[in-house]
Design a protein around this nucleic acid. Sequence first.
DNA 1: TCTGCGATAATA
DNA 2: ATTATCGCAGAC
Length: 191
Amino acid sequence: MRRVPAKLLLDHSSVVAPALLGKVLRVDLGEGDVRSGRITEVEAYGGLDDPASHSARGETPRNRPMFGAAGTVYVYFTYGMHWCANIVTGAVGDPQAVLLRAVEPIEGLDAIRAARPRARRDRDLANGPAKLCEALGIGQWANGVALGADVGGRSIRLLDDGTSPPAVPLVGPRVGISVAQEIPWRFRVPS
DNA sequence: TCTGCGATAATA
DNA sequence: ATTATCGCAGAC
């Protein structure tokens, strides 16, 4: 299980996004609590040219991590109660990111179930951007942190276990946006 | 399975 | 006012 090379993350988000399908997201929360899942759904968000992106109107305190280096994690709080996580792509100053929308749990299933008490079926554990964060324990602590970096005993890694991205991913419009709905930047592993 | 709706607070 | 969401209730 090797680390995803930084080079893969350094490109336009719409190019990186489908390449992340099948990769393994592993969160180490310390004290033996390790949770991971295979990425099955993502969305690309661009910079100033993408009106649906948090970075569309320039840099603010919230979106600052998007302007950082490729491989930075951007976590935001929304709807008054949910955390969602992105992987930043592209060069410093070019605010692009891939929203992680769904994973299928691999490691730490018991901890994941405990973190998602409202999920009645296992398929509902991490099949949404906020569910994914709650399941894997991703929160504000991860905002602005580089993949692989240690944050007080916690870390997030992106790994390749040999699974290839789907040759033909399902593609469609991004979810939950009110502008730029015609841009097909949502990518899913075919079921 | 699907559709509609309320929760809840940071952001601009 | 809006929001890169979720889970519940009710209809079928």
